[in-house]
Design a protein around this nucleic acid. Structure first.
Length: 130
DNA sequence: CAGATGACTCCCA
DNA sequence: CTGGGAGCCATCT
């Protein structure tokens, strides 16, 4: 095996992930779009190679699959998320309607050369959904 | 350069 | 909901 050297692109992924607010989650696809020039799978690979030490500064647990699915390797991702207030449904998926991130602020994105997320229709967050 | 791979996503049955 | 298959893009063999 090899030590895994984070590439420039991986570093960009980590930077984007660090923008996800506490208590919210983003999908692999969202991160890929924000960073640009890579797809969801590469985001997964970047996080997969995250070293223990590094994991402390990069909130990898806030990145989930499009359906809100988590952990593929018995990592205690759910535990970490619940600790910051993220709720799950009966199926073990994150309640995306409540916690999905809206992407970086346009100012931050512009300042760092990232791409803000396209309009995601009004997710009014009326928390009313039963 | 070709082939395999993966913490993904989308579509159809 | 489950399962299979194609598409995707950077890396590694």
């Amino acid at each position: 095996m090899q030590p895994f050297r984070p590439s420039e692109l991986d570093e960009r992924v980590y930077l984007a992930v660090q923008q996800i607010p506490h208590g919210q989650v983003a999908t692999y696809g969202e991160i890929a779009t924000v960073v640009g020039r890579l797809d969801a799978r590469e985001v997964g690979a970047a996080l997969g190679g995250l070293a223990e030490a590094r994991a402390a500064e990069v909130p990898w647990q806030r990145v989930v699959s499009r359906e809100g699915g988590i952990s593929t390797r018995g990592l205690r991702q759910r535990e970490l998320l619940e600790a910051e207030g993220v709720s799950f449904d009966e199926q073990g998926h994150v309640r995306m309607a409540r916690h999905q991130w809206d992407g970086p602020s346009p100012q931050w994105a512009a300042a760092h050369g990232f791409t803000p997320l396209p309009e995601r229709g009004e997710r009014g967050e009326q928390l009313s959904l039963f």
